[in-house]
């Protein structure tokens, strides 16, 4: 495959050797410089902090059972009693939104984290032993995983494992591996021949030490950028799985599954689709804005572009 989009990171990603402490400071510095200068990214960061607070404290403050069904109060539009209305089972939509925030955000973050961890490990190993049979085999496997476009790989895994919270996270983790592993592999390949890596090999450092002390540290920039972007993809994919009935099983509230309920009464209760849809959309949008800002902060190519 020769697609430029899939190679991801530019060649110039190899930074001069830095100690871990210096690097952390410069990461934080670059992040804040970028966020401060970018109003959308700043607003997005504030929104994300708020939505996480809502997920943690919302269900405590608004103490209504999100699973409680009531035939008497089905499909009620928003009112004082039910601020976001009720669904076709008479359940309170606001309560479902608040509890759903916990599930949807947790699944999205955990799934992305799984993909980042396993993708990084695979990328490190294939990059470090690049060109060997192990690298070739692993990369062919990644090619094969790429043959399942978009959400399809996650659908296949979730369909086989059956709907459960843990299985969705497994599906999302596997779904995230190909992209992350290719990006990390690319960075590691360019770092591998750098003098500081050769030097540490010369003084007798083993593969594990070189990977942990030198390679991961220098790949942190691209990993953070794509980890952020994969949170967005993960939340979106999790919602898609939920919409198809492959997510956290009912009657648990989850934003994607709530949209599926809303689809069933699409004309009778149009308001039902507004809340979960907008919540997914705004959260993914905010994560993407932050991810874009981070990419501008870390990608040396976009730096060049800004100067020219």
């Amino acid at each position: 495959m020769t697609e430029p989009t899939r190679t991801g990171v530019s060649e110039g990603a190899a930074a001069p050797p830095e100690t871990v402490r210096d690097l952390r400071m410069s990461l934080r510095y670059r992040f804040w410089r970028e966020i401060r200068g970018n109003r959308m990214a700043l607003a997005s960061t504030i929104y994300l902090v708020l939505i996480v607070l809502v997920a943690i404290f919302g269900p405590l403050a608004y103490d209504v059972d999100p699973r409680l069904q009531s035939l008497a109060s089905r499909l009620q539009p928003p009112s004082w009693e039910h601020p976001f209305g009720t669904d076709q089972f008479g359940r309170d939509v606001l309560a479902r939104m608040l509890h759903g925030a916990r599930i949807s955000l947790f699944v999205g973050f955990a799934g992305a984290l799984g993909g980042v961890v396993f993708g990084t490990i695979l990328g490190l190993a294939t990059g470090f032993w690049g060109g060997t049979w192990f690298d070739h085999l692993a990369m062919r496997l990644v090619d094969v995983m790429y043959a399942f476009p978009g959400i399809l790989l996650a659908i296949l895994i979730a369909a086989i494992l059956g709907p459960s919270l843990f299985n969705v996270i497994v599906a999302l983790s596997i779904w995230g591996i190909p992209t992350l592993s290719r990006i990390v592999r690319g960075v590691v390949l360019s770092l591998r021949e750098q003098e500081f890596v050769v030097a540490s090999r010369a003084v007798g450092a083993g593969p594990a030490r070189i990977m942990a002390r030198h390679l991961v540290v220098n790949a942190v920039g691209p990993i953070i950028v794509y980890a952020t972007l994969s949170v967005a993809g993960s939340i979106l994919t999790a919602a898609g799985l939920g919409f198809l009935g492959l997510g956290v099983p009912p009657p648990n509230p989850e934003w994607g599954a709530m949209l599926s309920d809303a689809r069933a009464v699409v004309f009778r209760a149009p308001y039902l689709s507004y809340f979960p849809g907008a919540a997914i959309f705004l959260t993914v949008l905010a994560v993407n804005f932050v991810g874009d800002a981070l990419r501008d902060a870390f990608d040396p190519r976009s730096e060049v572009r800004r100067m020219s």
């Binding site: 959308m40 898609g240 949209l259 689709s273």
Partner: peptide
């Protein structure tokens, strides 16, 4: 570019439902 990011971020099943409601209602 902000609008483009909207397009990337919107769940297609929600957009579909909204468009259905637009022409249906």
């Amino acid at each position: 570019m902000s609008v483009a990011l909207f397009g990337v971020s919107i769940p297609n099943f929600w957009l579909g439902i909204l468009l259905m409601q637009l022409v249906g209602l």
